[in-house]
């Protein structure tokens, strides 16, 4: 019995304010060593908030976090001081959508990577610089030696993203969190970064949680997928299971909106409406107001679950009722 790398159970995150925002409402999942989980959701679904909780990056004073978050068996929510600093960047690190904001504009790339290594491993400056060079080569930055002394603004978008990945991986973290790291990139650069991440993940055996709104991107990098809506996972499964046999109407709608198998020029099967504002925790199914299969039974709390295996499930009344496993259904 091996311990999972990440164990999140019944995570809730509330931002206090007037009105409060219930950003995450009861998220549970586990991630094994070396596994890649894609979290798919639209803006405001709580996917980034979930990610930031794993690094304790949310503003402490106005955030209420409930539930349990453990990485390598250590309770992340209880970390303090030195232990928290070691956790951030040492055990878990993160890459962001905009490397321009994550990299410090006044230090060279080499210096930034070296500082991180020194802080976490206490090695000498020359060792740290050697590691920085090694990292830039690892992320396939051409003429890496010269790039060490570049400032972030001297690099192109794709290069900066590679530099940020190098920085994130410098201390060999066990878990990498990726928050839409390719969204701002051009298509031909995006695929380079995705392939690089996939390769590095395999080489270093990291666990990765990859948050995105783009199904295509999620499919390229993930082993497992979780579809998130209104602060909850509504469906999880392997990538193939979700792409070919989505059970939750929201997942189906998202697939249709991503033009999976759409007929050119025809009207799309679009989900009407917009996501709820989450000023109160949702009761029953949060998607019901936009769902064509919705009925009075969708107000049940807790909602019945359709479940095939431990991590292949959909939280939907209609899916649970149509329990006959049919692949013909769209």
């Amino acid at each position: 019995m091996t311990q999972p790398l990440v164990e999140v159970s019944d995570l809730t995150v509330t931002f206090q304010g007037t009105p409060p925002v219930h950003a995450v409402n009861g998220v549970s999942f586990t991630l094994a060593q070396g596994e890649v989980l894609g979290i798919l959701g639209e803006s405001g679904s709580g996917k980034s908030v979930t990610l930031k909780t794993l690094l304790r990056l949310l503003p402490e004073r106005r955030t209420r976090i409930g539930g349990k978050v453990a990485v390598e068996g250590r309770d992340v929510l209880a970390l303090e001081g030195r232990a928290l600093a070691d956790h951030r960047g040492g055990v878990v690190s993160m890459i962001f959508q905009d490397p321009g904001l994550a990299l410090d504009p006044v230090y060279t790339i080499g210096r930034q990577i070296a500082e991180t290594v020194i802080r976490h491993e206490g090695v000498s400056r020359s060792t740290a610089m050697a590691r920085a060079l090694e990292m830039l080569e690892l992320v396939r930055i051409p003429s890496a030696k010269r790039r060490l002394s570049n400032y972030p603004h001297e690099m192109s978008g794709g290069m900066r993203q590679r530099a940020m990945i190098a920085l994130a991986l410098a201390c060999k973290p066990k878990l990498l969190l990726a928050d839409e790291p390719t969204t701002a990139l051009d298509a031909t650069v995006q695929i380079q970064i995705l392939l690089l991440l996939r390769e590095l993940q395999r080489e270093m055996g990291m666990g990765v949680i990859f948050v995105t709104h783009d199904i295509g991107v999620a499919v390229e990098v993930s082993d497992k997928l979780a579809v998130m809506y209104a602060g909850s996972f509504v469906e999880t499964g392997s990538v193939a299971e979700i792409i070919r046999d989505a059970r939750h109407p929201y997942s189906q709608g998202l697939l249709a909106a991503n033009l999976v198998g759409a007929e050119p020029g025809a009207l799309l099967k679009a989900i009407p409406g917009a996501p709820p504002a989450l000023h109160a925790p949702p009761v029953g199914c949060a998607f019901a107001p936009r769902c064509e299969l919705a009925g009075p039974r969708c107000g049940a709390d807790p909602l019945p679950l359709w479940q095939a295996r431990g991590d292949r499930w959909a939280r939907c009344v209609a899916a649970a009722e149509a329990a006959v496993p049919s692949h013909a259904e769209p």
Binding site: I191, Q192, L195, I215, V217, V219, E220, S238, I243
Partner: peptide, 15 residues
């Protein structure tokens, strides 16, 4: 460079 949307035929090489 378009993501393939097919888990069995992922893009293997950047064009």
């Amino acid at each position: 460079a378009m993501p393939s949307l097919d888990p069995d035929r992922r893009t293997m090489e950047a064009p």
